[in-house]
Write a protein that binds this DNA or RNA. Structure first.
Length: 191
DNA sequence: CATGGGATTGACT
DNA sequence: GTCAATCCCATGC
């Protein structure tokens, strides 16, 4: 496996990082997947948790880039983000879907499912499949959780569209999807 | 201290 | 298509 992405990769505008993460590999233990769907969040817009400023919850978002922001959603699911932008600026990329590439049987055990396309096709599904929980909040992304560059070559064809499941700043086209992937959380809406 | 609202998912009509 | 599950934490009294 290649070296993890350097901290400088994340110390950039969060929308750029969200697009560039498509095709990269997320690993945790014996499980790994290729990123096919991301969303960018930034303190300047109200859908971002960091919009409310520095609180105990948002401390990690405002911290050093290249770390995991993991939080509980709807009391049930853990959602995985990569903290971006310089320290002091609250921003992160939500990892919304993966194409499973390693440890698929272990993912099936954790998810209680058989169909490969259902294992990591959603932000709550992929954390369950990879065994990622809240204790990994603030963990560096070159540790137990690691992010790795995509293979050399042209970037995967992708498209920007509106983010999913939010009620504010819904118009921003900050969701990025790999074109043609069978592992998205939801289809790409018609343009 | 009480309340309300989610960056979701799976089961069900 | 509808809806409940369930926990963290921001907000307001």
């Amino acid at each position: 496996m290649t070296d993890p992405l350097p901290v400088a990769f994340y110390d950039r505008p969060v929308v750029d990082v969200a697009q560039d993460l498509l095709g990269c590999v997320v690993r945790h233990g014996a499980t790994a997947g290729r990123i096919v769907e991301t969303e960018a969040y930034h303190q300047s817009e109200p859908a971002c948790h960091a919009y409310v400023g520095l609180t105990p919850r948002t401390r990690v978002l405002f911290g050093t880039p290249g770390r995991a922001y993991v939080y509980r959603s709807y009391g049930i699911h853990a959602l995985l983000n990569a903290v971006c932008e310089p320290e002091g600026e609250g921003a992160a990329v939500l990892i919304r879907a993966l194409e499973p590439i390693e440890g698929v049987d272990l993912m099936r055990e954790r998810r209680g499912l058989v169909r490969k396309r259902d294992l990591c096709s959603g932000p709550g599904k992929l954390t369950q499949a990879l065994g990622i929980e809240l204790e990994l909040n603030d963990a560096p992304l070159d540790g137990p959780i690691s992010f790795h560059p995509r293979p050399p070559g042209d970037p995967p064809p992708s498209v920007a569209c509106e983010r999913i499941g939010i009620t504010r700043a819904v118009e921003l086209p900050w969701r990025f999807c790999a074109l043609g992937s069978e592992h998205l959380s939801r289809p790409i809406p018609p343009s």
